[in-house]
Amino acid sequence: MATISQDNHGLRLAVRYLVLVLVAVIFIFPLVFMVVSSLKPDQQLLSDTGSLRAFLPVGDIGLSNYTHAFQRAPVGLFVFNSVFVTGLTVLICLLVCSLAAFAFVFLEWRGRAVVLSIILATLIVPFETIAIPLLLLVSKLPWIGFSGIEHGWLNTYRVQILPWAADGLTIFLFVQYFKDLPRELIEASRVEGATWLQIYLKVVMPLAGPVLATAAILKFLVMYNQYLWPLIVVQDEAYRPVMVGLQYFFQLNTAWGEIMAYLSLITIPVLAFYLVLQRAFIASIASTGVKG
């Protein structure tokens, strides 16, 4: 790089940014449309959809869609429920899936191949197709609560969390990543007499920053957008998540502006989570330098 003249460098940089910006335009427009539309009254919103006006905050702009959205549905409650359920699921999922992946990659044990194959095969099962059997199952499952053993998991947070707490994709993600880590590190620690748990905690996980962040983001998205499952297992409004809440806005006369306002609001947590993790992701790489 040192041989390239300063001018040339500047030009290259400009071209790079130009490409980045052009690509950005292609990807950002749904968000712009969503936010801009949330500021418009329905009639104008709908007549603007055919032109570039759809992406410009022009005309009769205001926040009334937001006030109406809050009147129509307990938006704060829904967002809380979703963030709570999603957050907890992501945490549990990262833990149990990374543990399992650790066992699949670094340990040798009887049954490893079979168990891994079964778990990978579950990647193929679309959730829609097992929803009803799963519903019948959770409606009977026992749970130890404050008042002893209860039966039936409907109308709870746990019914929204536990069935999703482990999944083949996340395990697969960890497995493929762990495979790239140097095995000598593990073996060396073993020779030094470290327990497996110590190796997991002190050797592997500190190197797993990027994959933890990636898995967390992907899992967060899946959980935050849950619709069918909470719909059938949660009848009590107190436990309802955001995507079921979206249905509040599809009335006979659809309130498009309020829908956009609601969507803009519920997108904030996902976006925030993504951006925070991006930072952590970069930081973790900088500190570990990863493998050689």
């Binding site: 409606s139 039936g152 059938i232 009848q235 009590d236 809440g245 599809f250």
Partner: peptide
């Protein structure tokens, strides 16, 4: 009263019936 969004109502009742609820 427990209210449900109209678009999801029938599915909710069917699920409720399946789960005996």
């Amino acid at each position: 009263v427990q209210s449900f969004p109209a678009g999801a109502y029938n599915d909710t009742v069917i699920a409720g019936a399946l789960a005996g609820n």
